[in-house]
């Protein structure tokens, strides 16, 4: 363990640099930094979560435990063999992938593997980070944490010489990454987590979207706006019941709602320039809606929600009723 400890220290300075780059996330280079960033996050998560004391802390602690295991794993590979190192790398890749594809549901399933946990931890951490606004302390700690996986990879590449291996490792990492997840680049690095929509059936013809308030809170959007969008997209109508749940006319499955939500996020939540979900929706002049990004400061107008043509359905029923 003493060896591992020393290695991280060396890494720290480098990592801190990488982290700073990672925060600014850009395409290929950005992704690289991001990857580093992500690993940092996992380690950082440990550090950040306990002090933050958010509602997610419980989850985080679980993650933390898993993370600890994972760390040990990674540390062992450093000393042991190339194959182990590969495993660790693969695990890291998997984690990245999940984060980028913004799997909302994965989190819930949770903990099949240590690797998965790291991913989830990353996701969760991302959420925490968004709330915290990325504190400076986290950076330093993150750098430290990052040292472990990085060291493992470095040793993996050249058995002992760490500095030379790093770019090679990165290359290998990303080639593998792209092989396994071709859509990671297109989807960008979204470490953004939203709880899956909960859909209940009310009677035969209505669907209750139970946690819309929570989801809206996460997205920082008004319930009305999301509701409007949902109705326009689904081509139905509905109402809000006493406990702020949304009652939608028609039968909808969770998957379908989720699809629409995804589209909403792409259109009205994520910043098109930096892809950060940390944005605000404001009414500008002329009744136009503008999305302002909190991380890069860009501002763009978004189209108003139009319901479009809706055919008349159940005319006879209406006449009878």
């Amino acid at each position: 363990m003493a060896d591992t400890d020393t290695v991280p220290v060396d890494r720290k300075s480098r990592k801190s640099v990488a982290f700073s780059e990672g925060t600014s996330v850009m395409d290929a280079d950005g992704n690289i930094s991001d990857a580093v960033h992500g690993e940092d996050k996992t380690t950082a998560e440990k550090h950040t979560t306990p002090p933050s004391g958010d509602g997610e802390v419980d989850k985080m602690t679980d993650m933390f435990a898993n993370m600890a295991k994972k760390k040990k794993k990674s540390s062992k590979p450093k000393t042991s063999a190339i194959e182990d190192g590969e495993e660790a790398a693969a695990a890291a890749e998997g984690g990245e992938f999940d984060a980028s594809t913004m799997k909302k549901k994965k989190k819930k399933s949770s903990k099949p593997k240590a690797a998965d946990d790291s991913f989830e931890a990353k996701l969760a951490k991302a959420g925490v980070e968004g709330e915290d606004g990325g504190s400076g302390d986290a950076n330093g700690e993150v750098a430290e944490q990052e040292g472990d996986p990085l060291a493992g990879t470095g040793i993996w590449a050249h058995n002992t010489t760490t500095p030379i291996s790093y770019p090679l490792l990165l290359n290998r990492f990303f080639t593998l990454l792209n092989q396994y997840n071709p859509d990671i680049l297109s989807s960008g690095s979204k470490s953004y987590k939203i709880p899956p929509p909960q859909c209940l059936r009310e009677g035969n013809k209505k669907t209750i979207f139970a946690n819309i308030a929570e989801i809206c809170k996460r997205m920082k959007r008004s319930d009305e706006h999301v509701t409007q969008f949902l109705f326009a997209e689904l081509g139905t109508s509905g109402s809000v019941d006493g406990s702020k749940r949304l009652v939608i006319k028609g039968r909808f499955q969770q998957k379908q709602i989720e699809n629409v939500l995804r589209r909403y996020i792409v259109e009205y939540v994520t910043c098109k320039t930096c892809r950060s979900p940390d944005t605000e929706l404001n009414k500008g002049e002329n009744r136009l809606y503008f999305v302002t990004c909190n991380s890069c400061g860009s501002r763009r107008s978004v189209t108003a929600i139009k319901s479009g043509f809706t055919a008349q359905i159940g005319k006879r029923k209406r006449m009878n009723g």
Partner: peptide, 13 residues
């Protein structure tokens, strides 16, 4: 667009 009708029936516009 798609609209739901009775049961599994739908309408595409």
């Amino acid at each position: 667009r798609i609209q739901q009708r009775n049961g599994r029936k739908t309408l595409t516009t």
